[in-house]
Amino acid sequence: MSTTQLKNAFSFENAVKLGAGTDYENRAEFENAIGVYTEEKNENAIQIENLNLWYGKHQALKNISMDIPKNKVFSFIGPSGCGKSTFLRTMNRMNDMIQDCRIEGKIIIDDEEIYSRETDVTDLRKRVGMVFQKANPFPMSIYENVAYGPKIHGVSKKEIPSIVEESLKAAALWDEVKDRLKSPALSLSGGQQQRLCIARTLAVKPEIILFDEPCSALDPISTGKIEELMTELKKKYTIIIVTHNMQQATRISDYTAFFLSGELIVSGKTAQIFENPQDKRTEGYITGRFG
């Protein structure tokens, strides 16, 4: 059954037709109860269909199908080695650089199959930005770090200073660094470096931003700043975050997916998954009994 068929089956209209719609006052209430987002309400930024991934002979992702809604924060949780980071990296094809990595299935972004031959990988990565676990600014000045992407993508020289300022403002770093844009990026604190990396990603104007455990090396205050930033960023961008921190997932994400040894166990609204976990394994993990 395709995603659209599935959606139609669970739509409000269908429910009314079947007589179940009468239990709910309106569409919103129905959708909230059933936990299905329809296209009118939320477009999907990414659709994943039957994705399988192998590292050599080891299968790291097993038949994953899910939709990532636009302008929401989607968090991936699960124990180490469950494949969530690998899954995240399939979305901007960062796994391409790993030898022996084989992928089957479909990932569709804006009606384009990103693993098809016609896809320009660099163009894809411009649209799907990524922030890494360890802040990795280049050994250049703060300004140069943010200007790096636009410069290489051929943005005219006049526009670059304003892009740098915009990006740093959007990453909530401008006020802290506006007087020392020329100083080395590596002189910033860990949290500032991570926000600089976010600014650098924003500077190439992506649609989707992937965060791979962005706060795992940061103190609570820096973490708080980045979480605040994400809630701000989701107004303009679709955000996917891999996290080991359950509280973080509940604090910032609208949707959550739980992975276990390469399989997608459950995915849905964060509140539902955390308050009413249907699956024993999910419950065990989020309550800290394993993982």
Binding site: N92, M94, M97, T122, D123, L124, R125, K126, R127, G129, M130, F132, K134, N136, P137, F138, P139, Y148, G149, I152, H153, C197, R200, T201, V204
Partner: peptide, 15 residues
């Protein structure tokens, strides 16, 4: 040169 620099650059859509 740390692998992270290359990754960061590739993730920005740089060839």
């Amino acid at each position: 040169v740390p692998k992270e620099y290359r990754e960061a650059s590739h993730a920005l859509g740089v060839t």
